[in-house]
Every structure is written in structure tokens, then in C-alpha cells.
Amino acid sequence: MKFGSFLLKRLLLSIFVIFGLSIVIFIIARVVPGDPARMALGPRAPEEVVQRLRQEMHLDKPLPEQYFYWIRGVLSGDFGRSLVTKRAVSEDIKEFLPATMELAIFAGILMAIFAVLLGTLAARYKDTWVDSLIRTLSYFGVAIPAFVAAIIFMLLFGYYWPILPVLSRLSPGIIPPVRITGLLTLDSLIQGNFVAFWDAFKHLILPSVALSLGGLFQEARITRSAMIENIRKDFLSAERGYGIPERVIMFKYLLKPSLIPTVSMMGLDFASLFANAFLVETIFNWPGISRYGISAMMHKDLSVISAVIIVFGAIFVVANIIVDIIVAFLDPRVRLSTSRGI
């Protein structure tokens, strides 16, 4: 099948994208004013110690040479050492990334399910109160930033009506599962530790809902308008005219073509969850990579900044390749045009 070669092409292309990203982020991180060695050691460190650290970090070399040292390390899995945590960046990423992944994946699942559900309902009951309600909610959902929603949720469900935990990933006193994937819910489930699973799950709810709202309602609106557009198409009239039952038309012949724009949008939204995660992680004291990355930027922790951005870039690329696969599965026009050149 020609679709395989299309995918291969996409993969090769994305390697170039990430390579380009690495150059850009490397340069930007270094041209920003401020001396990382001095910031790491503090204002009272003697100049020769600072000078030695600069040499260790190759900061005294010209930029291309610095890049060479850095990329050589990255390719062998060594992202350097964090100046703040004093640990290998790769270690830090291993620790912080799964927390954010768990949050983003959960938010992504919520986004996908509820966007399609609400969009379908709004389209099905167009111009009724159901539609108006969903559309009004959408305005709020799209307009309210994730961190504002996070604070509101925290107040509502953590303070006025405290039914859900609002800080960190696990309650104190709960024995965490042995680390396998780093996703607490998954790890605890694998090990049959249901107490930890339930607790970790409860911790996930508020931050992931806060994080998902923007994308969720945006996609719900896209689903709604795609459905309303398709419902007027001749093929739908034809299918109805052949006596195919309404539910088959709704959930098969209407839903599939209407999902294409939603899924395309979801790839972008899923990736931007990681960017939005920063404030949500800060508010819910979630030990994730977005928070880690931003604190690194405050401290001009070069290795960490570059590494976090490369990781985000890779996630973005992978998410979009997955979306391409899903879209190609939904839409034969995409799949076949790669082999027929239409």
C-alpha cells in the first residue's frame, strides 16, 4: 500500500523539523541576555570559578561549535546537566514528563469524547435550547483561559464543596505504585493497586478538565458546523431517501465525514495542551515538565530549555502524525490522493 510510503515520508520530514527546531531553540536560548554560569553559581561566586564553569559548558566557544557539542550529546541521549537541580537533564525529564503526559492524555481523551458528543448533540438539536446551551457554554469554554478555569475549579471543588483533591498527584499516605511507565493511574492499575489508582484518578480530574476546556469547546463547535454542513448534502438526502434508518445515518453516514475537521484540529489542540499545562501545573502543584521547563527559563538553564523544547517538538510531531493516520483512515480522499496524485 502506498500509504506506508506516505507515512515514511512524513516521518523523515519530521526528523528535519525537529533538527531545525533544535537549531532555532539553541540560538534563541543563547542570544537572550544573561550569563547562565553566573546565574547558576550566584553573585558571590569568584570570577575564576564562573570562568571554569563557562569553559566546562563550552560557553566560551563560538555558537556553531557550542551547537556541535550539544547536539552530539543529545544524539547519544545526553541533554547535559541542569544548573538548577544539578542533575542530568535526561533524568529530570524522565521524572517530570510522565506527570504531564498523564495530564495531557487524560485531557485529550476528555477533549475527544466530549467535543464529539456535544458537537453531535448541538447539530442534532440545532436551534433548540440544547444547541443554545452548548453554544453558550462554548463561548465561555473557548474564552476562559485554562488557568482561570483551574482556579475556579479549585475554589469550587476544593474549598466550597471539597469533594476532589486539588494538590499534587497523590494524597499523602497513599503508597505510590512501583514506577513502570511513570503514569500513576496506569502503573497502579497494572499492579492491581486500586487504592492508589482511585486516588491518582481523583487527582487527575480537576487539572485535566481545566486543561481540556478550551480545545474541547473549540472542537465541539467545529464538529457542530461540519455536521450541519454535511446534513444538507445530497448524499445524506439520498441515504435518507433509500430508507436507511435515522440512527444509522446519524452515527455512520453523517458522523464519519463530519469528524475529519475535528480530528485535524485535535492534533494541534493536543500539542498545545503541553503549553497550557504550565499554569495548570503550577496551580495544582503538579510536578510536570511544563512547570519544570518554565522554571528553567527563569534561571536561564540552557540545557533544560533546549531539552524541554525538543521534547515538546517531538510530541507535537508525533501527535500530528497520529492525526494524519486517523484522518487518512477517515477520509479516503487523503489516503488515495497520496497514491493517485489527484
Partner: peptide, 21 residues
């Protein structure tokens, strides 16, 4: 009526067939 009695053939077959099935 639709499934047994009457059937309609549309003007533009490209528009009358669902593109994704």
C-alpha cells in the same frame, strides 16, 4: 415508503454518494 415504494436517482452522482464510505 422510502425503503420499499419509491427510490430517487439524483442529478449529480458525485454529490449523491457519500465520499468516505
Amino acid at each position: 415508503l422510502r425503503s420499499r415504494e419509491i427510490a430517487m436517482i439524483f442529478q449529480d452522482p458525485t454529490a449523491a454518494l457519500n465520499p468516505v464510505f
